[in-house]
Design a protein around this nucleic acid. Structure first.
Length: 815
RNA sequence: GCCGGGAUGGCGGAAUUGGCAGACGCACUAGGUUCAGGACCUAGCGCCCGCAAGGGUAUAGGGGUUCAAAUCCCCUUCCCGGCACCA
């Protein structure tokens, strides 16, 4: 009785593979690039992972049946720290560990019957992939977008490597197994100049209509464009001036001090050899030891330099402090202190008894510097501001900026929160940076022909020591200069894995090409990604910005036409178990293999799809499994018990008693189709349940009924493909439903002809009128006023008016 | 603090150009059937009153617009996510 899901699912997976049904078209005519984010191979996959894959697969299967040439690939983001940490812990080589995980995971994935074109699988840690990651680096280098600089960078003491800004969350390492408090270290590191693309990344968002608003908002936030004004302050007695960024040039007359970040390079010059030197140096030293978090949490303080700056609008001299609330990386690392109109400056001024000068009054009152207890930061009217007094914030800001521009002391400017992307990592398991350092020629890029720069495999010591383990591998480090042939050394660092994932979507288009990362014509055929399906918004300010950046760079360099990688983005909600994200480390993961062995892939798929809308988080529950299991049983029974009457054609005539069922069948076709297009898979399955219930309750087992079962099998196929193909074969269908066109509804019957018009009195439902065909308002009214239930409520009351919404509602308003 | 998203039965969730709130599933209750089952069938199932017919009430809370509000507007509370010493 119980269908053997193992045998059935295997049978159909073999058939699909044998017929090559999921092989991508060589020359797509009607292309659709359907991409789910690739994955890190952390072991074996569990039900939490497979939500993404199942949802992507339902869509792919639907598109195939709609006649699209679908590209639906999968691959592995295979470099990264966990492999190295396992190597340290267990003594397994990272490559071995990673490739074994990939093998295991591939097997599990195949159990789910996903329509991947496995011939296009990519693995980023293999040389034929990372060769092109290195090529990308060289492209950026040649375009001046990759550069090395000494800077204060985020150092994770746990991972013993630097991290990008995007990888520091609340001052702590982003890796859930690490969470170390990040330190600042001054190091010479590689950066990608993503800031040069800040404006285009921002402006591009306006055209990404089909991206979720929250992701776009997060990216805008992250880029953090702010309009303001630069103001140049000369330093008295030194040949230095500070170009300060402010969003409030209208408060310029309120400046009573200046603050410089402790990391500012001019500090030596300001205090060297003075009485202030010792104290300032001590302060700078202390600040350097603090983590970013400690700096934020402590009260604002600073130390005087004994130097003074000149305010360019009124030539006033103001003292210069060193203060660690000033961020070295934002603006120029110097701020003007306006205590009356900035909360931080106010705090600072109170602490050191610096003057507070009101230069902005609220629109309808006056501030008093003596008594005010907090800064007034709202817009207002300029006062005590010389010729600018009387202007409001907006006009004043513009006037001050114009004035400064004219005086050559600043002017309108723009600042970004976004910083350049730090890509060096002091770790082994990543793509080596293709740069050598020659004693004579200096820094030299590895020529394209010499790529890849291969990771040495004969290495056993992965223990981090603050520099890349590669630095100790002499055979790797020692090389010759490509330029002069002399002695040279390689860069010991590897690239952030986010570099690998910034371009992977291009490699799928031409995965075995050893001449180019991707042939131009293939890029033109397939790009942009028509539907990108992502695993949650945690990628919003990381991967999803980086891959847009890479796309724009490749576009500018003439390699691809597209300048945005993905038209549609769909963000999925995570799978929770007992209120926590399902993961192996939390111990609440249900391995795909274990589940599929017990229940089969189709039940796994139905459980996931029906539990919640795809974009929402779903709590895994065994009750959901019960429902899916039951659905499967009933479906099999429905088909097996009625094989003789099932018909693959629309009924030749529709008997009156079956018209309702026929309408239901067509409505379900329309509903499931539209739900498939908009990722509402939970309601699509609800509609299938409804149709099944209707079929089970059908009064006559006639042609309409037989056709209904046929439709049911068809509609089920994107969701539970093995079962659908099996049932299809039991009713003598040929091959797989993947090879069949999508069924379209009979429009003549997509709407019910019998209508129920709701009769309301004062907006409350009191009765219903059944009508067939057209009916006039007068007739509805007549019927309503004949209705006992209506009459009862009308007794003794006057009808004030009536409202009729055709075919829907008749509302009687009474006094 | 700023930005984004939410709040609907015992539970997951339906319903959005404003038009029958609670589709569908799960759980539960009663009856049947089978009793080896996490099997099957029928009926019921927001809450309150009622044997029932029926009536009242109900979409976080409060106000408003409307013949009609889960849906639109204003205020409040709470929850989730992001950003935050960004000058």
């Amino acid at each position: 009785m119980q269908p053997d899901h193992y045998k059935i699912e295997k049978k159909w997976q073999d058939y699909w593979a044998k017929k090559g049904l999921f092989r991508t078209a060589e020359h797509p005519k009607k292309k659709f690039y359907n991409l789910v984010m690739f994955a890190y191979p952390s072991g074996d996959i569990h039900m939490g992972h497979c939500k993404n894959y199942v949802i992507g697969d339902v869509y792919a299967r639907y598109l195939m049946r709609k006649g699209f040439d679908v590209l639906h690939p999968f691959g592995w983001d295979a470099f990264g720290l966990p492999a190295e940490n396992q190597a340290i812990k267990l003594g397994i080589h990272p490559e071995k560990w990673t490739l074994e995980n990939i093998n295991t995971s591939d097997e599990s994935l195949k159990l789910l019957g996903i329509t991947y074109d496995w011939d296009r699988e990519i693995i980023t840690c293999l040389p034929d992939y990372y060769k092109w990651t290195q090529w990308m680096f060289l492209l950026l280098y040649s375009r001046g977008l990759a550069y090395k600089k000494e800077a204060y960078v985020n150092w994770c003491p746990g991972c013993q490597t630097v991290l990008a800004n995007e990888q520091v969350i609340d001052g702590v390492c982003y890796r859930s197994n690490c969470k170390s408090v990040i330190e600042k270290r001054k190091l010479n590191q590689w950066f990608f100049k993503i800031t040069e693309y800040a404006d285009r990344l921002l402006e591009g968002l306006d055209r990404l209509d089909a991206w979720p608003d929250n992701v776009k908002a997060m990216q805008r936030n992250w880029i953090g464009k702010s309009h303001g004004c630069d103001i140049v302050f000369k330093v008295l007695g030194h040949d230095i001036s500070f170009r300060v960024f402010t969003t409030r040039p209208d408060t310029i007359y309120g400046v009573t001090f200046m603050s410089v970040a402790p990391e500012h390079p001019a500090i030596d010059e300001l205090v060297g050899g003075t009485a202030f030197e010792l104290e300032v140096k001590q302060y700078v030293h202390d600040a350097a030891k603090r983590t970013e978090r400690e700096r934020v949490e402590k009260t604002k303080d600073g130390v005087a330099t004994g130097c003074y700056a000149v305010n360019p609008v009124n030539n006033e001299k103001v003292p210069i402090f060193v203060a660690d609330y000033v961020l070295p990386e934002y603006g120029s690392g110097v701020v003007m202190g306006v205590p009356a109109h900035d909360a931080r400056d106010f705090q600072f001024a109170k602490k050191y008894d610096l003057p507070v000068r009101v230069v902005i009054n609220p629109p309808d009152s006056e501030l008093d510097a003596q008594t005010m207890e907090q800064a007034y930061e709202e817009p207002g009217v300029m006062v005590n501001s010389g010729e600018f007094s009387g202007l409001d914030t907006v006009a004043g800001a513009k006037a001050v900026a114009d004035f400064l521009a004219q005086k050559n002391a600043g002017g309108k400017s723009v600042n970004y929160r976004l910083k350049d992307w730090l890509i060096s990592r002091q770790r082994y398991w990543g793509a080596p940076i293709p740069i050598v350092y020659c004693e004579k020629c200096g820094m030299v890029p590895v020529p394209e022909n010499d790529l890849p720069v291969s990771l040495p495999k004969d290495i056993t010591d992965f223990v981090p020591k603050g520099r890349s383990p590669l630095a100790a591998v002499e055979s790797f480090m020692n090389t010759v200069c490509p330029s002069c042939g002399g002695k040279a050394e390689r860069d010991a660092d590897t690239m952030d894995t986010f570099v690998c994932s910034s371009w992977y979507f291009l490699r799928y288009l031409d995965p075995r090409n050893d001449k180019e990362f991707c042939a131009r014509e293939r890029a033109d055929w397939w790009l942009p990604i028509d539907q990108y399906i992502g695993g949650g918004s945690e990628h919003a300010t990381g991967h999803l910005i980086y891959f847009r950046f890479f796309t724009k760079v490749l576009h500018d360099a003439g390699y691809i036409t597209a300048d945005e990688p993905a038209v549609n983005l769909f963000n999925l909600g995570m799978v929770l178990k007992n209120g926590e994200v399902m993961s192996k480390s939390k111990g609440n993961a249900i391995p795909v293999r274990q589940f599929v062995n017990k229940h089969g892939a189709d039940v796994a798929r139905l459980t996931i799809l029906f539990a919640a809308p795809p974009e929402r988080e779903m709590e895994w529950s065994d009750e959901g499994v019960t429902g899916a299991e039951r659905f499967k049983q009933r479906m099999y029974r429905l088909v097996d018990e009625n094989t003789a009457v099932i018909r693959d054609k629309r009924p030749s005539r529709i008997p009156a008693e079956s018209e309702g069922l026929y309408i239901k069948i067509n409505q379900t076709m329309a509903k499931v189709t539209s739900d498939l297009e908009s990722f509402k898979y939970n309601t699509a399955i609800a509609a299938l349940w409804e149709l099944m219930n209707a079929l089970n309750g059908a009064s006559k087992r006639d042609e309409v009924f037989g056709y209904g079962i046929y439709v049911m099998i068809h509609l089920l196929s994107p969701f539970a493909p093995h079962m659908a193909d099996e049932l299809w074969s039991r009713i003598h269908g040929e091959g797989s439903l993947v090879e069949q066109p999508w069924l379209e509804a009979d429009d003549r019957y997509a709407e019910s002809k019998a209508k129920t018009i709701v009769i309301q009195i004062n907006g409350r439902v009191r009765s219903h009128v059944e009508v067939v065909g057209e009916i006039s308002e007068a007739d509805v009214k007549k019927k309503a006023l004949e209705d006992d239930r209506i009459l009862r409520h009308l007794e003794g009351r006057n009808i004030k008016k009536t409202i009729y919404v055709p075919d829907k509602i008749f509302n009687i308003v009474v006094a």
